[in-house]
Amino acid sequence: MSQTMTRSILPLTRRNLADSWRGLLGWTAGVAGAILLYVPLYSSFSGDNAGFEDIIGSLPDGLASTLGFQDLASGAGYVQATYLGLIGFVLFTIAATLWSSAAIAGDEESGSLELTLAHGVSRVQIMAERSFGVVLRLLWLSVVSALLILALNDSSGIDLEPAHVIGGCVALFGLGVLAASFGLAIGAITGRRSFASAAAAGISLLGYILNSLGNQSADVDWLHNLSPYYWAFGNSPLSEGADWGSLGLIFGISAVVLVLGGFVFNRRDVSA
């Protein structure tokens, strides 16, 4: 049992976090900056004289719905359109893409995965622990998002239910996890960072495009059903609360994708 005593908890996840805390600090600043910039602006737009609705009305047909700007006048609609559905979504997608493609494929391309594999860890453990490290970092950004939005809730006048803020940030987290799971799995299957990045960014972009197309008219409304972005945000979580069923689907798909990635990773050659 002396061996088990020297085994420590989640060595690869801890290494992953220790190697990336500087980057995470930057991402935290980015997320905080976006929220601190956009959310307080709501009070200056929301007054009777702000004419915000007029600005939206003057946009070309379709553009407002593409950007999700249909309901900017309410606090929930404003935070959804500016942060959750746009800047936050972009930041989470980029972070998930970079982190997930680096976790296995980046490490393999740089040549350092070989040495880790030569030690007393299984492929499945590497896949699981590094995925967990990415998920934890995305969770951190989600917690920061929720806390800052809640902190600004009164002063900015967005006036959201705390539970709905949490629900909205879980939805954002879910989209980050979904993108990361594709990046991790494709990276683990192919060992190519470019493929992993394309998969992670691609699934986010695809969801966004399908949602925007679905917004255009009732004829193509069915496209919403294919869009993870719509699953997460379609029911307006900031005003209605999270749609836990849809979020469960997003997390469930992510888990399946990760398991498939780990399955192939466990059976293939690792190149150097």
């Binding site: 002396s2 061996q3 020297t6 085994r7 420590s8 880790t116 030690h119 007393g120």
Partner: peptide, 8 residues
């Protein structure tokens, strides 16, 4: 780190 993932 490597000591954590190899023998004691």
């Amino acid at each position: 780190h490597y000591a954590e993932i190899s023998g004691p």
